[in-house]
């Protein structure tokens, strides 16, 4: 058994166990952390498959940004999780059924074909480039139009999400930092000249 194979089994086992604990641990924060661990182990597996860009992008996007926001929300939640978990056993058969159907569909879509046709050699290696360079060439030279369309759709989705959730409430107090910075002394204080007067004395 080579060192790489040992690594693969180790990371795959960690990913599997972590994925199982995501749905089985009691504490929601621990569950979110297990999801982080799953992502991380999968990134390691991808690194072993020499897909270094995908692996680092997974860590950067999902572990570094998405899961932080997820944790953020989970920590602020004050949900009684024992109540949520009450139906776990009752709904388990349905859940298993859905999972099995999904697995079957996935296998039909990708599994069967790849099992029959032998895996082709790494195209990046064939082109004599690093994985990253090859991806760049493919995305920005061969598939530029689909790439641009995909990014356009994502931008539209982003703007739509913002406009759907943005509420303009009336009566809220908003500070405008640019105005605050531009404020001058004359706007805030008024100097009043007064003659000094002793107590009981009438001002001249």
């Amino acid at each position: 058994m080579t060192f790489e194979l040992v690594c693969f089994y180790f990371f795959a086992t960690v990913a599997g166990i972590a994925a199982l604990s995501v749905i089985s641990v009691k504490n929601p924060v621990v569950a979110a952390l297990c999801l982080v661990l799953t992502f991380f182990s999968m990134a390691c597996v991808w690194l072993l498959a020499q897909a270094e860009f995908l692996a680092v992008a997974l860590v950067l996007v999902y572990v570094g940004a998405v899961m932080v926001l997820f944790l953020f929300v989970v920590m602020m939640l004050d949900v009684d999780f024992t109540a949520v978990r009450e139906g776990f056993v009752r709904f388990l058969p349905v859940g298993v059924l859905v999972a099995v159907v999904m697995l079957a569909e996935m296998l039909m879509m990708i599994g069967v074909r790849t099992l029959q046709t032998p895996a082709t050699a790494d195209p990046a290696l064939l082109a004599g480039m690093s994985n990253m360079e090859w991806l760049g060439h493919t995305l920005f030279r061969d598939f530029l139009l689909p790439f641009e369309i995909a990014s356009l759709i994502l931008t539209v989705g982003l703007i739509a999400a913002v406009t759907l959730t943005l509420r303009k409430r009336t009566g809220t107090k908003i500070q405008k930092p640019s105005q605050q910075v531009r404020v001058r002394r004359e706007d805030r204080i008024r100097l009043v000249k007064m003659a000094a007067v002793k107590k009981g004395e009438v001002a001249p």
């Binding site: 270094e52 992008a57 860590v59 570094g64 940004a65």
Partner: peptide, 14 residues
């Protein structure tokens, strides 16, 4: 590392 800059960004975000 070939993807050094990305890896750096990933690590600092951890």
């Amino acid at each position: 590392v070939n993807v050094g800059l990305l890896l750096l960004l990933a690590l600092t975000s951890l």
